[in-house]
């Protein structure tokens, strides 16, 4: 399974991954149109402490507590990618309580949202990776 890996050594804390994520999941074909005057809600987020930065997004765990604890069946595993069916989600946030990385967050509609590796949007491959200027975020098969 290809997964996103973050090499903290090269993370610049530029936050571009967040913006490329928000754009990729906006359904807009232009980044300006998608993100102008918008408070973004990216599914990958930079953590920052005393100059150390790192990007955190869903690890697509092999044994995902979020999926196993999901009370509505909204979270499921599809060929190794953990998907969220926002239509089914009722916003109980059990997954938020379960995720060891804090990678699932409530969104503005009261349901949760998470990284789906851009598999369901028009890009088809993780755009945070593409937007990272320093190769800190990579999308690789590592067995």
């Amino acid at each position: 399974m290809k997964r996103i890996y973050v090499n903290e050594k090269w993370c610049l804390g530029c936050h571009l991954c967040e913006y490329y994520c928000a754009y990729a999941n906006s359904n807009e074909s232009d980044m300006v149109k998608a993100l102008k005057n918008i408070k973004i809600r990216p599914k990958i987020k930079i953590e920052e402490l005393n100059g150390v930065t790192s990007a955190v997004s869903c690890r697509h765990c092999n044994e995902p507590y979020c999926v196993k604890g999901c009370i509505s069946g909204a979270l499921s595993i599809n060929e190794g990618v953990i998907n969220i069916d926002k239509n089914k989600c009722i916003g109980c946030f059990t997954c938020v309580l379960s995720c060891p990385y804090g990678a699932i967050e409530p969104d503005e509609d009261g349901v949760v949202d998470k990284c789906e590796l851009c598999m369901k949007n028009s890009f088809g491959s993780p755009q945070c990776v593409k937007g990272c200027p320093n190769n800190a975020i990579v999308y690789e098969e590592r067995g």
Binding site: R3, Y5, V6, N7, E8, E47, E48, L49, V52, S54, A55, V56, R59, Y101, G102, E140, R142
Partner: peptide
């Protein structure tokens, strides 16, 4: 605030960095 920065660099390298 719950955050991974509270963990060791090694932990983050193993979990986020593979």
């Amino acid at each position: 605030k719950p955050q991974l920065m509270a963990f060791s660099r090694k932990y983050r390298d193993e979990t986020l960095g593979g």
